[in-house]
Design a protein around this nucleic acid. Sequence first.
DNA 1: TAAAACCTTGTAGCTACTACAGAGTCAAGC
DNA 2: GCTTGACTCTGTAGTAGCTACAAGGTTTTA
Lengths: 150, 150
Amino acid sequence: MRSLLKIGELAHHTGCPVETIRYYEREGLLDPPLRSRGNFRLYDQKHTERLNFIRHCRSLDMTLSETRTLLKFRDVPEDSCLEVNALLDKHIGHVVERIAELSALQNELNELRSKCGGVQTTRNCGILQGLSGSDVSMPKNLGSHGGGCH
Amino acid sequence: MRSLLKIGELAHHTGCPVETIRYYEREGLLDPPLRSRGNFRLYDQKHTERLNFIRHCRSLDMTLSETRTLLKFRDVPEDSCLEVNALLDKHIGHVVERIAELSALQNELNELRSKCGGVQTTRNCGILQGLSGSDVSMPKNLGSHGGGCH
DNA sequence: TAAAACCTTGTAGCTACTACAGAGTCAAGC
DNA sequence: GCTTGACTCTGTAGTAGCTACAAGGTTTTA
């Protein structure tokens, strides 16, 4: 009989914070585990594998929604995996697109940067002047500094 | 005497949604404008310029916090703009870093993708097997699919 | 037996908006 | 003068994926 892990132990084994494990359970990505008499969560090997799967997806920057989809495929071993391939292709597409966007951004930023050497007053700073121009074109992916690509 | 704009007109002029303009005011990026008798916001030319500045910063993927900082510099025209340059350099650094991360991600994803041609059952799908591995290394910037780099 | 380390639920916060609900205002047409 | 429709107001809740508490219960160790 395999040993059951308390949430802190599972966290330690997987490198996933305790709070995040509980969050995944709330979100339905992890099944509710057994409970001890004192109401502590007790995880088995399957939970550990599933959590590793989830974390691997997340480390590849997939959304929880994509991850959920992949877990569903994983739960039906006889199905064709065509859709798994399609999902991954789409995800790779997002990443490629985001790289292109950021590269364009980098060019714009470098150009802006070249407008001032830092020896001006802010009144004459080419950067601030550049930012004051009204030719603003908004990219689609705004606002969430922190990492994504979707 | 210049004409004053209602919020919808300002939105139209700047391409910034009405709700976002009100949000910037709440966040202290835009000064509260005059009000009409009926309590409608009335914006002058300075508001328009400031909003364009903000939107330009955002289009370059700067955070509102960075934008706030740049606005402060802009408000003190006699100061040196060394810090403006520093802020921009830092921001460019973030973008470069994020591009590197996403490129690494792209490599990993391509490798994973090559493990299956979609002709398997999910049980034998190389992609799902690859995702089941426990060698998970989490990048720093997780979770916000949508655009950032900080 | 007491303290420390762990666990529980529930809630609020983070970014930068976006999307309502429910009410008030204003201009044009009849 | 009245109605209709477009606009505006405030306030609140939702988005993604956690993270960080508070206030309490459990287990382990000294």
